[in-house]
Nucleic acid binder design. Structure first.
Lengths: 155, 155
DNA sequence: TTGTTTCCCATGAAATCCCATGTTATCCCA
DNA sequence: TGGGATAACATGGGATTTCATGGGAAACAA
């Protein structure tokens, strides 16, 4: 699982250290790196490992070949995603278009969201995070811990 | 189940012994440690084991991808949670931001709440506990047990 | 060439591991 | 049931490794 929020520096060559915890999640994948694409929903990047791409692929293959949603999903995810491999020290090199899409300059914030993660401009993310926490506080009764499902143990 | 309340010391390196009872609850998890995040609702930390995270993950994946509640939950729980592994003696190292969020200095109080637990500043918790007990006393008629579910025994 | 990308090595800071110790709780046996 | 032996637990400090980051050399492209 991708968890927690980490901000790392982007150097003059466009290199960016991927948090060690995130690298551990994709260890063993055929790609020694991560898949990243610009979000169609805002000025940030989305990404994940092989497991995430396999799930998206499975979801798409279950849709009708000429379903508009299928075409949109294929284009905006598979059409936009790049495999970014780690260098010997666990860094990726951000393509310029990705950095521009997310407004990344000098620093980037990785946000772990379980099955996937996002990469944000740190200042922009701080605002979004504050909004999310405020929403959660105001709606905490709706966000209560869900009931256990079949097969899950309470311990 | 996480049960009971224990206060342990935090040393100069930020290390904190997790109560042995709590460690026993997560024994066998893929992570030899616990998941902890700053509560979005107050100056304390929340945490649990793999079973708890799996429940949150399952609940989130049942929601619509761009639902506000989903985004709020993803960011305030997964985006904030860190896997903290035990050292050889059953201690975790508290990240500085966590200690600051909960006002932890020198000592920390673990409070078991069944499926999850909380970590508090001992003095702050003492006040909260007193308030909670008073509330329970005044509202004791509302504290009835729900009906047993199928398969559950009364014993 | 000139600019770009990839690989390799250096470094300081931070996190992790390893061993030691006192104290408390548990066990066992007389 | 008392009391000594044993194991479990919380805590402390030093040594080691990992991590993020910087820069240079080599391979590549235009």
């Amino acid at each position: 699982m991708f968890l927690s929020t980490t901000t790392n520096g982007i150097d003059a060559k466009g290199r960016l250290s991927v948090p060690a915890d995130f690298r551990a999640v994709v260890r063993g994948d055929p790609l020694d790196g991560i898949y990243v694409w610009p979000s169609f929903d805002g000025a940030y990047l989305e990404g994940g490992g092989q497991a995430l791409m396999d799930r998206y692929l499975g979801a798409i293959e279950d849709m009708d070949p000429y379903d508009d949603a299928r075409i949109a999903m294929e284009r905006s995810i598979f059409g936009a995603a790049k495999p970014l491999s780690f260098d010997a020290n666990g860094r990726i090199t951000l393509p310029k278009v990705f950095a521009e899409h997310a407004g990344l300059e000098g620093r980037a914030t990785f946000v772990g969201l379980g099955a996937r993660f996002e990469i944000w401009n740190p200042d922009v993310y701080a605002k979004h995070e504050a909004a999310a926490r405020a929403y959660a506080r105001e709606n905490k009764r709706a966000l209560k811990l869900p009931p256990r499902r079949a097969g899950e143990s309470a311990r």
